[in-house]
Design a protein around this nucleic acid. Sequence first.
DNA 1: ATTAGCACTCTCGACTTAAGAGTGCTAACG
DNA 2: CGTTAGCACTCTTAAGTCGAGAGTGCTAAT
Lengths: 361, 361
Amino acid sequence: MNLSERKKIILRVVVEQYVQMAEPVGSKAVATELGSSISSATIRNEMAELELLGLLEQPHTSAGRIPSALGYRIYVNELMMHQKISSGEAQVINHMLGNRPPGQAGLVDQAGSLASRLTTYPAYAMAAVTGVTTIARFDFIFVDSHTFIIVTLLNNDTVKNKLVHLTVPIDPHLLTKLASIFNASFTGIPEERITQALINSTERAVGDTIGIVPVIAGFTIELLVESKSVDTRVTGTMNLLNHPEYRDIDKAQRLISYLSDDTELARLPLPSASGEVKITIGPENLAAELKDTSVITVRYDVGEDVQGIIGVIGPTRMEYSKVAARLSYIAQGLSVLLAGGDKLQLGLEGENSKLGDDDIG
Amino acid sequence: MNLSERKKIILRVVVEQYVQMAEPVGSKAVATELGSSISSATIRNEMAELELLGLLEQPHTSAGRIPSALGYRIYVNELMMHQKISSGEAQVINHMLGNRPPGQAGLVDQAGSLASRLTTYPAYAMAAVTGVTTIARFDFIFVDSHTFIIVTLLNNDTVKNKLVHLTVPIDPHLLTKLASIFNASFTGIPEERITQALINSTERAVGDTIGIVPVIAGFTIELLVESKSVDTRVTGTMNLLNHPEYRDIDKAQRLISYLSDDTELARLPLPSASGEVKITIGPENLAAELKDTSVITVRYDVGEDVQGIIGVIGPTRMEYSKVAARLSYIAQGLSVLLAGGDKLQLGLEGENSKLGDDDIG
DNA sequence: ATTAGCACTCTCGACTTAAGAGTGCTAACG
DNA sequence: CGTTAGCACTCTTAAGTCGAGAGTGCTAAT
């Protein structure tokens, strides 16, 4: 869009004033903001033209003007100052991502709640594993004659376990045999290849008479299926209520119920590259429920396999630059922490290593 | 409180009408509800007396009457029909508690969300472990020269694990040694008794030069501390917005922010016996924020050690009998499922056993 | 003791009005 | 020709007015 320099300035001022005040801004307000270098009458003319161009709108004849979706778009693309996060804020974010309370839900969760707190909008976080998950290794721990533990190491370096109680006694040697057979035939294969045929043949190979093989296989399948699922968390939903556009309970509720539907959230726009911030404004959203809300998402990648999204949803009247900067910073932090965070370094100069708790459970 | 039979009937009708309609009920409404066996004038007199007794209130001179907190109390204690849950509802509850999606948060979580859905009020669920948690057994699995897995079995039959990466190679024999030493000195003791002195002496006994003992000890402490924590979940907060008393956003927000404070929630009234339903009405609550909300809680016990609370918070105008019945049923279900749910039965007549996923993680 | 009747009170929505904000237009100016 | 001062006009919003409706309390009759 080719706008005169003056129109750009005026558009920017209107957007910024409106974002801050949540009320239509009039020609006079713009004039004083500009230090009265231009008269309000001139600004009136310019604003009328900006309205013709579809960048501003008038809620009613005798009110100031507010940006249209297109106006926000121009602002975001061309006029917005890309602000850097302050070093103080950076420290807060680092601190909170680093010192998450143990036993709490995972890091991604924490990132979501951090995002919603820092932006005062509802945030959602989703972590997806795009690579194929397989079991790298099985171990079976004999506890007592009626109890053993299944321990599996996945190819993404997480450990999962299950305690199994039996009603018939089990021979420790059987567990050893099970381990070697499962390690031979169930490791390194994706969930689709754990077929009933494989289970049956394994059962025969083990000489299993008490149905222990299907149980282990079932546990394995469950793990692998679960690791495929994209799980999404939404936090800070009630932040909505702080913003005047959601004083209307029904409006708030419509958005809230939209936000609590995971399948809908999965359809939100995804940034195509790691670190990229994607801003979708009002009607640019496919979902009708979001036609006057904006979505800002940022993607973070961890290695090649894992990628995740953090996003914030709020009214179109949003502090785009601030939100984008903070999200972006959080995403960076996540990439770093997730890449190296839960591997414990030992044996060097006795550094004060931190425990990751991702796999505890 | 000694009330004439007629006053009791009138009070009951007023409460029930008001609970349903959310609007003050007048003498005429009561009369028609009673099939006009008594005239509205008589009822007016009775209602005036009930107001003098402090059981009814008038929002303003020319409106109907609404129950006071005391009125609700009398209703709950003396007049309420203790309704049984319908068999259809029971089935729904059973089904949802049984078929929770794998990989989802725990059963308690599910129970909370079930409670909020069935009652249309915000619900909170909290599970507390009152017994002392200790480690029953350690195992260390050698993965490769720089990696091993810590597997611990707790005395409450859950398994926790952690993957440890090392920067220096480790000898498998060291792991065997570690296992025997940790099993000898770290099992069966509560977190308080894992002192720095114990860690130091263990380190010497192992001949640990790479700082591996403190890491394992640290993990252990973390586990035991975590197992002590009471974690509380609140679900369905947004249900509030469906109820007319929370059309006022500020009021809703005050309660919502109260609900998101775990430490406040921990102070809510607790039923003293398992299965008991405790109802706290409006100003009976200690917290000022709850002065016009009611809290219904029910306790469930699992064995001797674990006990938990499920509660529902809503406006004083609440369907007490319905909520109490449903909560009570959910609590029963939880007790049963938690007592036996995650132990897998094997080796009998090949029953179709279900996998519990509480410890998978 | 109960009830019909009635005057009284209070809320609520509809309507009116005045103030205020902001605009668009016209005419004057450099 | 672009800019600006001035002004009539429009529209929203808050405050005030008014009447209908609901429900009460009281009185008097049964």
